[in-house]
Write a protein that binds this DNA or RNA. Structure first.
Length: 830
RNA sequence: GCUGGAGUGGUGGAAUGGCAUACACGAUGGUCUCAAAAACCAUUAAGCGCAAGCUUGUGAGGGUUCGACUCCCUCCUCCAGCACCA
């Protein structure tokens, strides 16, 4: 495209103003000045090769918010950083031979260039890069604090293992039980792993969601599901002929009389003891071994057939002293509850299926009086509520009431106790990978596992390590790294060789931006308390659970150890929708990636920004259309020509005209209505699409007035000037380059972003004459123009005098006459 | 199954009790041009009608109301998250 073909010289002005803003330090913030602070934060990205227009939505939205808040007089902090540790860089290194650090830092350079091109401005002096020692030193420090508090611990756990890649995989990298990259079936390996005890915070993480009214409902719902609180009773069963007790957790204590067997997870610690001495012990053991070997992922699938084996033992049901057989089955998970359940086939579908398979008794204890249930013929479990039956003293009660009564009975007679269970598991944070922050633990034969003391941090990630995937931590093979001295006894000791999950890095970065260069602490508590919680957090909904839950956990932990004075990090959260192309999420493998580079060179960054914002409500997914983007480009060309035309009109002579014409009054009104609308759209939420369409309407009306006649008096010129100035101002957060240029073309000083956001004039939007809609029986029949302050009697008279209305209502009785002032009249006739 | 969200022209969408389809994309016709692009003007929910206009219409069916895309009830469909969680 040649210069002549451009609708306006975007290429020249965009680079010019980007340089200008950077040289003036538009978003440089002095954190000591926290009066009217506004912390606008976008989720920091993983530094991948290149951004596409879908990624851009996040940064564009954030930039609009930051620029708008600045014009509203806030001291805006808007920093950016990079979540720079992680598997992709390491995999690329294995494949291409480039060191992860080198490729990561290169990617960061590319991404920074792309962000600059979009006209997205940050306080780059505060950049946080999580793979650099000055940052991960403090990630390690937080680990040691958690360790001191007993919230970081090590235990054996099953991890995902890809036999073909010879590596451990994160849960997120396992798709339908197979390796995300090579599709091999994932196995389970029992290894020593590090965990954070997030389950200690489950209750608070759930309850405090109520403190977040400005988080999207769907995000809170996802977190609630993930934490998964349930209330029930833990029953303490006596085992017949053994001194041990067996604990079972149930949410349906009302069905206790219907328990016809007990089921244990194959991993349950009592399994060996229970089967020993049984006739079929050997055969049982074989089946148990088989179930244990099945991958956790396939076992957790409801489609997998239920299998089990009888232990030969019984428990005593405390409510009726019946002997209940103990079985072992693959459908019981050791990780939830107590790993043992009381099975009630009549009222639980899974128990029902198992009972059918192994011909175990089914006993109905909750009945539906209208539709009596028969154990012999029932096709599926009756899981709903009903009336208690076959339940001794509780017969006849409603099952909902019986839950409380039986729980009371259990507690009174010390047969069990009420208990709350969470689905949430502890956070497995160790990775047998190279490209992450080393876990700062030292093992000494004499002193045990010891956290690396603060003054010895960071534990530097060595650069000369062979990191081909063998399934073991690459750091294990670096003697230089492994061999160290015990911080306590100074004897020979070994370092932990696992690295931390990158979600640990990203769970506290928003605190670091306030004092990014602090060397003796992770952050300055006093300043952080001034600037946080974050006023607006913006990011993708894909982080609704993990990142946001982990960040909330770490914030609460830091609050508990008095490092911060707040226990929720993000006051307002906005999650933007994805940008779709050809019906699918943009991805290199699908080949449907829209690159911003070509679009920016053809139409300019402002066009890409405007279209991204105009495409639809930002919280919803949207389909990218190149034609739609061209439409945004044409609009900007139209604005450019309009401003030039209004600005260059020379006929600013005074004429005798002292009152505005109808059209001029209308435009002035539209100007102020638009200021009102755009301001409300920005304050009341993220309604960028409607804000932009209202500006388009103002541009259209301004254009019409200009086209409707020559500019030949100062009153008309004034009206047009006012409209055009409002257009430029209101557009500025969305399309900053063209707005800044037009601002200067209009002869205004400084930067438009140092100006105050316009306020609308109430007097300009009141109307003397209004058009009212006239309905008869709710159907639109006519419109009339009446003075805005018309009284009811006058209005009635006017309406009934209208020829169309006269025709319809003539001779009929008017039953009701409804008036919505300045808007509508509805006449109800018989 | 549970939880959250959505369903409106050819398309993206607007309207949260008061003119349904703003704004834009696309389409059709026209002006300008040697021509094209751009720009500008007009039309663009469906049906009936020469027309003024009339009728129907916001996933389906009921209800509340003078009046319902909007509120209530019963469904259907789609999207997302979780799911053998006892």
């Amino acid at each position: 495209m040649t210069n002549d073909e451009k609708l306006y010289p975007f290429d020249r002005i965009e680079s010019k103003w980007q340089k200008f803003w950077r040289s003036k330090g538009l978003f440089k913030v002095d954190t000591a000045d926290y009066k009217d602070k506004y912390y606008c934060l976008m989720m920091f990205p993983y530094p991948s090769a290149a951004l596409h227009v879908g990624h851009g939505r996040n940064y564009i939205i954030g930039d609009v918010v930051a620029r708008y808040k600045m014009m509203r007089g806030f001291n805006v902090l808007t920093p950016m950083g990079f979540d720079a540790f992680g598997l992709p860089a390491e995999n690329a290194a294995i494949k291409g031979g480039i060191h992860p650090e080198e490729s990561t830092l290169n990617n960061i350079k590319t991404m920074k260039r792309q962000l600059d091109q979009w006209g997205v401005e940050y306080d780059w002096d505060r950049v946080v890069i999580s793979c650099l020692p000055d940052y991960y030193k403090w990630t390690q420090w937080i680990f040691t604090k958690l360790y001191e508090e007993g919230l970081a611990y090590k235990k054996k756990a099953f991890v995902n293992w890809c036999p073909s890649c010879k590596t451990v995989l994160a849960n997120e990298q396992v798709v339908d039980g197979a390796c995300e990259r090579c599709d091999s079936g994932v196995l389970q390996k029992d290894l020593e792993q590090w965990f954070f005890k997030i389950t200690d915070y489950a209750g608070r993480l759930l309850k405090d969601l109520d403190k977040l009214p400005n988080w999207p409902e769907r995000v809170k719902a996802m977190q609630k599901n993930w934490i998964g609180r349930s209330e029930g009773v833990e029953i303490d069963f006596k085992i017949d002929g053994l001194p041990d007790r067996l604990k079972c957790y149930t949410t349906r204590i009302d069905t206790i009389y219907g328990a016809t067997f007990i089921a244990l997870a194959p991993e349950h610690p009592l399994v060996e003891k229970l089967i020993s001495g049984s006739k079929e012990a050997a055969a049982a053991l074989k089946l148990i071994e088989k179930m244990r070997a099945e991958s956790k992922i396939s076992r957790a699938d409801a489609e997998v057939a239920k299998e089990g084996v009888f232990t030969g033992r019984f428990v005593i049901n405390p409510v009726n002293n019946e002997k209940v057989p103990i079985w072992i089955s693959n459908y019981i998970l050791m990780e939830y509850g107590t790993g043992a359940i009381m099975a009630v086939p009549a009222h639980d579908q899974r128990d029902f299926e198992f009972a059918k398979e192994y011909k175990l008794p089914i006993k109905v204890v909750i009945d539906d009086p209208k539709n009596p249930i028969d154990a012999g013929t029932m096709k599926e479990a009756h899981v709903g509520e009903g009336i208690m039956t076959n339940s001794g003293q509780f017969d006849g009660m409603r099952s909902e009431d019986a839950i409380e009564k039986i729980a009371d009975y259990f507690e009174k007679n010390k047969l069990g106790k009420r208990s709350v269970q969470y689905r949430l598991r502890d956070w497995l944070i160790s990775r047998q990978r190279y490209w992450g922050a080393p876990i700062p633990i030292i093992y000494c034969d004499k002193c045990g596992a010891i956290a690396v003391p603060g003054k010895e941090l960071p534990v530097l990630l060595p650069k000369d390590v062979e990191f081909r995937p063998t399934g073991e931590s690459p750091l294990k093979f670096s003697d230089k790294f492994v061999n160290t001295k015990c911080p306590k006894c100074h004897g020979p000791a070994r370092r932990e060789t696992d690295t931390m999950d990158t979600f640990v890095d990203s769970s506290w970065y928003y605190l670091r931006y306030i004092t990014p260069k602090l060397e003796d602490r992770p952050f300055d508590t006093e300043l952080v308390n001034r600037w946080l919680p974050v006023d607006q957090y913006i990011g993708g909904v894909e982080h609704a659970i993990l990142h946001l839950l982990y960040s909330r956990f770490i914030t609460k932990f830091l609050f508990d150890i008095k490092m911060t004075g707040f226990d929720e990090p993000f006051k307002n959260l906005f999650t933007q929708g994805m940008i779709i192309k050809d019906g699918a999420k943009m991805s290199k493998s699908k080949g449907n990636v829209v690159s911003p580079d070509k679009l920016i060179s053809d139409y300019g960054a402002d066009t890409v920004r405007l279209y991204t914002l105009f495409i639809g409500p930002p919280e919803k997914d949207a389909e990218w259309s190149d034609r739609g983007a061209e439409g945004s480009y044409r609009f900007l060309g139209r604005v450019w020509r309009l401003v030039e035309k209004v600005n260059s009109s020379e006929l600013k002579v005074d004429s005798k005209k002292t009152t505005m014409t109808k059209e001029e009054l209308s435009l002035r009104r539209k100007t102020h209505l638009t200021i009102k609308k755009v301001t409300e759209d920005l304050d009341g939420g993220f309604h960028f699409n409607t804000a932009i369409s209202s500006i388009m309407e103002l541009v259209n009306e301004t254009h019409d007035l200009l086209a409707g006649g020559s500019v030949n008096d100062s009153l008309r010129q004034k009206t047009l000037d006012e409209a055009v100035e409002a257009v430029v101002m209101l557009l500025s957060p969305f399309v900053p380059h063209i707005a800044e240029e037009l601002w200067h073309i209009l002869g205004k000083p400084n930067s438009i972003f140092k100006m105050r956001w316009p306020e609308y004039d109430r007097s300009a939007i009141v109307e003397d004459v209004v058009t009212m809609v006239v309905q008869v029986n709710g159907r639109l029949r006519s419109r009339i123009e009446v003075p805005a302050d018309i009284k009811e009697d006058g209005l009635k008279e006017n309406v009934l005098a209208d020829p169309k209305i006269k025709e319809i209502t003539g001779g009929k009785t008017i039953k009701n006459f409804i008036i919505v002032p300045k808007k509508l009249v509805n006449i109800v006739i018989g």
